[in-house]
Design a protein around this nucleic acid. Structure first.
Lengths: 127, 127
DNA sequence: ATAGGTGTATTAGTTAAGATAGTACACTTG
DNA sequence: CAAGTGTACTATCTTAACTAATACACCTAT
C-alpha cells in the first residue's frame, strides 16, 4: 500500500504524510477506516517505528486521523473535506509555477494545452 | 541585488543559484556580464565564501556562468537560451501540480482562470 | 614589480534535521 | 492473561549545510 524512497530528498515521515493524504483524497482510505498500525508499517517498510509515529503525529495534528490508544489510528471525520480545503491553497503555488514558466518563454497556449491534457486524462478515467 | 533567507528550508547556495537563473531569464544579467565576486557577495550577504563558491560551481557546472581565475565570473554565452530549454522541462511538474489540484476538487475552470490571471499580469507589464 | 582583487582548493569544525535503537507505560481486545 | 495498540523518553548515529581559516595561482592597475 505504501511506498517509500529512502534516497529521496524529502524525509520519510513527510512521504508518509503525503501518501496518506493522497489515499484519503482518492478514497482508498475513507473516513473511519483503520490506518495500518505503527509497528506493522514499521516492519513492512523497514522503517523505524519512531519515524512512522512522527508521520502519524503530524496527521493527527492536522486533524486527518484520530489516534485511539490501545485500538489504533482511524481516518477522521471530515478528513477528506478539510483536506480539499487546505489543498486549495496550492492555487497560489500554481500561479508561481506558471509565472516561472512564462519567464522561461513558455507561451500561454502551451500552458493551456497542458491543462487540457490533464483534464483529458480525467475524462478517460470516468469512462 | 541578491536576497537570502537564512531561515528557509532551501539551502543558501541553492537560493543563490535560483536567483542568478532568474536574473539571467529576466535580463537583469546579460551574457558576458560580470557576476559579483565571491568575496564581495560574501560580505554583502554575510555568508561564508565557501557557500558562495558552492553556488558558483553549480552554475558553472550547468554552463550558465564561466569562471576565469584572476578575473571573475561572467554570464556564459547562450546562458539564457539553455536556461529556457531546461526550464521548459518543468511542464512535467506543472502537470503533476494540476493533477493534485484536480484530485482536491479544483475545477478545470478555476485552473484556467488562474492561467488567465497570470498572463493578464504579463500584459500589464508590457504597457 | 608590487599590491590588491580575483577564482580555487583544502582541512577542520559546528550545527541541525532526520533516522535508528532500545525501553517503558497504559490501554484494549480476544 | 497475552498480544497488539498508541505514546513517551533518552541516547546515539549519520548526513547536509554552513562556517572558519589558510593557502595558492592568476590578472590588472598603479
Amino acid at each position: 500500500m505504501f511506498q517509500i524512497d529512502v534516497m529521496s530528498r524529502t524525509p520519510v515521515y513527510e512521504q508518509l504524510v503525503e501518501q496518506v493524504e493522497k489515499f484519503i483524497l482518492t478514497g482508498i482510505l475513507s473516513e473511519g477506516d483503520k490506518v495500518p498500525s505503527v509497528r506493522s508499517l514499521s516492519m513492512e517498510l523497514s522503517v523505524n517505528p519512531n519515524t512512522i509515529q512522527k508521520a502519524f503525529s503530524e496527521l493527527d495534528r492536522r486533524g486527518l486521523i484520530s489516534s485511539v490508544p490501545g485500538k489504533g489510528c482511524f481516518v477522521a471525520e471530515k478528513a477528506r473535506e478539510s483536506l480539499q480545503v487546505s489543498k486549495r491553497g496550492n492555487l497560489e503555488g500554481l500561479s508561481s509555477q506558471i509565472r516561472e514558466l512564462a519567464l522561461a518563454g513558455v507561451s500561454k497556449e502551451e500552458i493551456l494545452s497542458c491543462v487540457e491534457k490533464v483534464f483529458g486524462e480525467e475524462e478517460k478515467k470516468n469512462d
